[in-house]
């Protein structure tokens, strides 16, 4: 055994050396030195056999567990899915609360501005602007455009599926509806404002940073002739092209009574001081 003198050049190795030298439990030697010969006959040692049996069982169990490690991976995935669901539910709750609070604010404003004629005019102006900006829900006649992915049409083995509805297709419809005179547009129940991006991230289409799931329903409220104006616009021609070339299904249904929800999470960005009353 190496000494512990600071001059020992071998000092850092003593740990390893001790590990190798004491590989067998020193207890065996000590027991023998004590003359303790009880249980020295391993041939009849039940403890030895049982320990070996336990070790073998644990070994086999571990090997089996490692081999089908796949359940672990799917478990992780299920856990993640649960987390996503839970978080989505929380977001929905918060959204609902936001809606309630927004309605409360609107009500309070209504009562505050119920006084004089000029106040009422201001309230009317606010209400009209809210509809335009996208804060307030809008109801009325309109049109609903439903798009669905066509049958898979991949290019080669792993190429992109051309029959999928893309973010640009959604943009096309939304822009076409606004061009046809729509007052308010929503995609899958999400109001489009001037600040709503429509883009793709990987395979998902995001509207206002929230992923969409097919089918894609684009609802628009506007004047009575909105549907005809849209059908005769350039967007319709492009949609027809998509339908005939890739089998993307597009249904355009005029509706008498549509409701487009408002967007509650618009923040006030600029405020200018009005004329003092």
């Amino acid at each position: 055994m190496t000494g512990r003198a600071p001059t020992d050049p071998d000092a850092s190795l003593s740990l390893l050396r001790r590990l190798v030298d004491d590989a067998m439990d020193p207890g065996y030697q000590e027991a023998t030195d004590r003359g303790d010969r009880r249980g020295a006959d391993w041939r009849h040692s039940t403890a030895f056999a049982v320990a070996i049996a336990v070790t073998a069982t644990l070994f086999v169990a571990t090997v089996l567990q490692v081999r089908d490690g796949a359940p672990d991976a799917s478990q992780t995935r299920a856990d993640l899915t649960d987390q996503v669901m839970a978080t989505t539910a929380t977001v929905e709750q918060i959204d609902a609360r936001l809606g309630t609070l927004n309605r409360e604010v609107a009500q309070l404003r209504q009562t505050a501005l119920a006084g004089s004629g000029s106040d009422r005019a201001l309230a009317d102006e606010v209400a009209a602007l809210e509809g335009e900006v996208g804060v307030a829900a809008v109801e009325g006649t309109g049109v609903e455009v439903v798009m669905e992915d066509g049958p898979p049409a991949t290019v080669g083995e792993s190429g992109p599926d051309l029959a999928r509805v893309l973010d640009t297709d959604i943009q096309l419809v939304v822009n076409g509806l606004f061009a046809a005179g729509a007052e308010a547009v929503a995609v899958n129940g999400q109001r489009i404002t001037v600040l709503s991006p429509i883009r793709s991230a990987g395979e998902a289409i995001l509207v206002g940073f929230r992923p969409l799931t097919p089918p894609y329903a684009i609802t628009a409220v506007g004047p009575d002739e909105l549907s005809e104006a849209f059908e005769s616009g350039s967007a319709k021609a492009a949609l027809d092209e998509l339908e005939s070339a890739y089998g993307i299904r597009v249904d355009i249904v005029p509706e008498d009574n549509l409701s487009v929800p408002g967007r509650g999470d618009l923040a006030l960005r600029y405020v200018t001081k009005g004329e003092s009353p």
């Binding site: 207890g27 027991a31 023998t32």
Partner: peptide, 13 residues
Amino acid sequence: RALLDGIFNDRVF
């Protein structure tokens, strides 16, 4: 190793 050395002891083990 201990039993090959002839110093096996089941209590120690």
